[in-house]
Simulated scan of single mutants.
Amino acid sequence: MATTRMSIDSPLAVEVAFRQEMVGALRRVGEKLETMLAELKGLERELRTLTGPPREKRIALYQQIRSDAEYQRWCLVVQREAMGLFDHSEVDLMYPVPPVVK
């Protein structure tokens, strides 16, 4: 009967599954954030052409999506830190949350 001997340095199957889930969660948050940032860009373009009450409604939507995007960005940073990634300069470059619109 053959036996398979694992190296002490080899990760356990549960560790591999855990890491895969962490990466998947990071990917999902990043994709959600990308979608929100794209929505904000579209709203920014739209706001340039609006005035009056229609503009105010779109500004309210913009501010809500922006707030949600800030929260998703925070979630992304927290997940990265849980994985041992503490330099967030790449997050700043890849996921810039636009400024508040008035």
Rank of each mutant, 00 (worst) to 15 (best):
P99I: 06
A69G: 02
Q64A: 14
K57V: 07
Q79T: 04
L85A: 09
M36F: 03
F18S: 13
M83G: 10
L47S: 04
W74M: 11
L76H: 00
Q20T: 12
I59Q: 07
M1L: 14
Q79E: 09
L40V: 01
H88F: 13
G24R: 12
S10K: 13
C75H: 00
S10N: 07
A25Q: 10
L85D: 10
G42V: 06
L26R: 05
G30Q: 08
A60F: 03
T49L: 07
G30H: 01
R73K: 15
W74L: 11
M94K: 15
L93H: 06
E81W: 08
R5N: 09
I59L: 15
K32F: 01
L93F: 03
L61G: 01
R27P: 02
I65M: 07
A82R: 12
C75D: 07
Q64L: 10
E56S: 13
K102Q: 15
P99W: 06
V101L: 13
D92A: 14
T49C: 03
R80W: 04
T51S: 15
S89F: 08
V77L: 02
Y71L: 12
M94P: 00
E39T: 12
R27E: 07
L47C: 09
A25E: 04
G42E: 11
L93K: 11
G84K: 12
Q79S: 08
S7P: 06
T3H: 15
L43T: 05
S7W: 09
L50T: 04
V101F: 09
V97K: 02
L50V: 09
L33C: 03
V91I: 15
E21Y: 09
W74D: 14
R28V: 05
E90D: 15
W74Y: 12
G24Q: 10
R28F: 00
A13E: 07
P53R: 12
R58V: 08
T3M: 14
A60D: 01
R55V: 00
S67N: 13
H88D: 12
D87C: 06
Q79R: 11
E70C: 10
R80M: 11
Y95I: 04
A25H: 03
L85H: 06
R80I: 01
M83A: 14
D9Q: 10
L26V: 05
Y71C: 03
V97Q: 05
